[in-house]
């Protein structure tokens, strides 16, 4: 890893760490509120998998949802802020290659996602004892999910010229895909039509695979989920690298 790449990644990490209350603390609190409300209302009424209570089912979904949203936020908000304020020029004037640029933004965003995910996991330990059936799958899906959303964040950050365009991307693309991915329910509890729709949502595979790591049970095979998530990352990474190599909206 080159010094330039490490520095850009360090800058991105330092940027969110300096406002950690907002970038790590706030999403952990939000996830905790979801847990308190939904588990209170539904825990005794819903059993999603055999022998798995609703609160236990919900926690991996909340961890993954927070991880995905924050990985996206990190790269997208950093880029749009740097573009709008003009300080992205300090990176663009340097010998940093587009591949290093991509790697630094994605790695930093994955680390923030993992940190927030770990925070949500830590606070939910008070409420539920989770099994850890396949820890390696947990790590694989957490990292892949973070990388997918970080890449999507880079695309959105480069594409958006204004904060409201980025907010639209977040509200009309990221949020619906996250909420309709099975964070709060198993897709087997949906009508058949919506089950089919869920199967074209890549977020569903990330969350389902992640949940498999805890319970050893999932709606689809973790290998299929890994294939979809891995393929999604490769596709998004290629799109992002192409945009960066062409200097799309960065170099005129």
């Amino acid at each position: 890893m080159s010094k330039a790449l490490r520095t850009l990644m360090y800058k991105e990490l330092l940027r969110f760490w300096k406002v950690g209350f907002q970038t790590v603390g706030a999403p952990v609190l939000t996830a905790l509120l979801y847990l308190l409300v939904f588990s209170h209302v539904l825990d005794r009424q819903v059993e999603v998998y055999g022998g798995v209570g609703y609160t236990a089912f919900l926690v991996p979904g909340l961890i993954m949802m927070s991880l995905l949203q924050n990985a996206f936020s990190n790269s997208s908000s950093s880029l749009i802020q740097s573009k709008v304020t003009g300080n992205l020029v300090f990176v663009l004037l340097t010998p940093i290659s587009y591949r290093e640029f991509f790697a630094a933004y994605v790695l930093a965003a994955v680390i923030r996602g993992l940190l927030v995910g770990a925070g949500v996991w830590a606070v939910t330990l008070w409420f539920v004892d989770l099994p850890y059936a396949h820890p390696l799958w947990i790590l694989v899906f957490a990292s892949l999910g973070g990388a997918i959303m970080a890449s999507l964040g880079v695309i959105a950050g480069i594409w958006a010229d204004k904060f409201d365009q980025l907010a639209a991307f977040q509200n009309f693309v990221v949020m619906p895909l996250t909420f309709l991915s099975g964070v709060f329910y198993s897709i087997h509890s949906l009508p058949e039509f919506w089950q089919r729709v869920s199967h074209v949502n890549p977020f569903f595979y990330m969350i389902d695979g992640f949940r498999y790591g805890f319970f050893g049970q999932s709606d689809v095979s973790p290998w299929i989920s890994a294939l979809v998530a891995g393929g999604s990352f490769v596709a998004l990474a290629l799109v992002t690298l192409n945009m960066l190599a062409r200097g799309y909206k960065l170099r005129s």
Binding site: S2, K3, A4, T7, L8, K11, F90, T94, P95, I96
Partner: peptide
């Protein structure tokens, strides 16, 4: 940070 971008 700016130094680091140049590998210093």
């Amino acid at each position: 940070i700016q130094s680091g971008y140049f590998g210093m």
